[in-house]
Amino acid sequence: MAEVKKMATRDAYGQALAELGEEHENLVVFEADLAAATKTGVFRKKFPERHFECGIAEGNMMAVAAGASTMGLVPFASSFAMFAAGRAFEQVRNSIGYPHMNVKIGATHGGISVGEDGASHQCCEDFALMRSIPGMVVLCPSDAVEARAAVRAAYEYVGPVYLRFGRLAIPVFHDEGMSFEIGKGETLAEGDDVAIIATGLMVYEALQAAEQLKAGGINARVINMCTIKPLDTELVLKAARECGKIVTAEEHSIIGGLGEAVCAAVAESGIPCKVKRVGVNDEFGHSGPAVPLLKQFGLSAENIAKVAAEL
């Protein structure tokens, strides 16, 4: 994995929109005054007539997108995760989720890795909020290649989809043309001593952790769980049966995210398996450069390896 190219998943989101816009006339974008940051500006440059600025009014934007979707358009509504999932939660719940609208929510700047802007903008609650809405698909791609594939899959899926992208440039480790299916996890490394189930930027950290664990004689399975809902329960329970130990890793609160979804699946299965969650431990973030900040919050390969080794 030498010389790994880095790219933020938000950049891949903008690219994917521009690509898909070429193929699909009915793809439109709604934006809440953050086009340069969410990267929907890339789409706007190519298709200005299909990019609708909503101003700083995320709640209105979500319900506008819902209405537009009833007219045969496929809207991608974008903002930062904090405002898309947080501020506009109730519009997403009632105007998009309840009528099962064909609206895609492209939420960038998820998690602690927002960095310097600090806790007000570091959304670590979006998985919890979006998972709780019946029928909502929740995706969190692990690199730029998967992000592009996820955007395409979200377009092709009929129904509401929440996509979380990141601000930070992270390693691109998937091969171009990877196959992607909503609801299917991806096993990136085989091993039977412990399974690391990760999502988003924690997937690459999980792969690094597996390398570190290998040096200590522990063979870790690494599963990339881009789809947080619906969870690939089959793959989770296979890991539970075959490894007996699971570490989850996500750039999200340990409350309500991937970790809790895995815990619920394992607990209800009756399979004896220990689970530990690596995530943000029920606290707010703060300002600082993203990479040291992630380390400080234990969102690192070293911490995953430590937790896995101790399990």
Binding site: A63, G67, M71, G72, Q91, N94, S95, P99
Partner: peptide, 20 residues
Amino acid sequence: DMSTGSLGQGISAAAGMALA
């Protein structure tokens, strides 16, 4: 034409329909 009940959202959805 639209599921409503939570006040304030219907007008937004209607505006989205008109735009579309």
